[in-house]
């Protein structure tokens, strides 16, 4: 099926058309995404669900410009990212995308504040401005008091908050979360989901979240299901499509 539930009057911020992605493993060609269409309106909190190998992380990587499609087009905020070079993609990611990873992926040698500051090193902001942005981001995730702590001294939930602060510190167009609660206990996971909901609701952040967890997807405004590289259903919270 195609994504027909992009219920918005605005042009979608993410528009995926006839996207295909194949990998070669040994002599065999594996088709991970198969002519997939997806629209994500600005300000939506979307959950991507599906069994392992269904292509949801691959789709997230394509939307985030971490990988290039084999065919079709991926348009994010008006930019055809499949046409960008490796260098242009890097610059584009720095400007438009905030990533939140399952295992937080913080640099263990840096403090929480320094981790959050990393994306700002690629901007022309002064040191004082960077410091101010970092403070705001850490405040937004409720971790101002842990700014000088290294990841090793933080709990899993706190590390993921730092990861979210790093993702939002440049005020990106899109927040892409790959199993953000996958490594957390239920309580910490709920806190992270509440934080993402708040970012979506209060700051209008567009969020696409890959998850296996129905409990997590229930927090999203819409959930799409993938199977064998194709979109099989799209469910708006509180309704069936």
């Amino acid at each position: 099926m195609t994504d027909s539930n992009a219920s918005t009057n605005d042009a979608p911020i993410v528009s995926v058309r006839k996207v295909e992605k194949t990998f070669r493993r040994g002599g065999e060609e594996i088709r991970v995404l198969d002519a997939l269409d997806l629209d994500v309106p600005k300000g939506e909190f979307l959950a991507l669900m599906g069994p392992s190998g269904s292509g949801k992380t691959t789709l997230l990587n394509l939307i985030g410009g971490l990988d290039q499609p084999t065919g079709g087009s991926v348009v994010v905020a008006g930019e055809h990212i499949e046409d960008l070079s490796s260098r242009e993609l890097a610059d584009w990611r720095a400007e438009n995308i905030g990533f939140v990873f399952q295992f937080y992926n913080l640099l263990p040698v840096l403090s929480a504040a320094r981790n959050v500051e990393l994306p700002l090193l690629l901007t022309s902001l002064s040191r004082a401005e960077r410091k101010r942005h970092v403070a705001v981001a850490l405040e937004a995730v409720g971790l101002s008091h842990r700014a000088s702590h290294t990841p090793r001294t933080l709990s899993g939930g706190e590390q993921q908050r730092v990861g979210i602060a790093r993702a939002i510190v440049t005020d990106p167009t899109l927040l892409l979360c790959d199993e953000p609660t996958g490594d957390l206990d239920r309580k910490s996971g709920d806190e992270i989901l509440s934080l993402l909901q708040a970012l979506n609701r209060d700051q209008g952040k567009t969020i696409i979240m890959v998850t296996h967890d129905p409990h997590a997807s229930a927090r999203a405004a819409r959930t799409v299901h993938l199977e064998k590289g194709q979109l099989v259903s799209s469910v708006v919270a509180g309704a069936m499509a």
Partner: peptide, 15 residues
């Protein structure tokens, strides 16, 4: 390796 992946993901160019 993984940290280099993170740096690239957040916008560090290959160069």
């Amino acid at each position: 390796t993984q940290e280099i992946g993170v740096l690239k993901a957040i916008g560090f160019t290959d160069a």
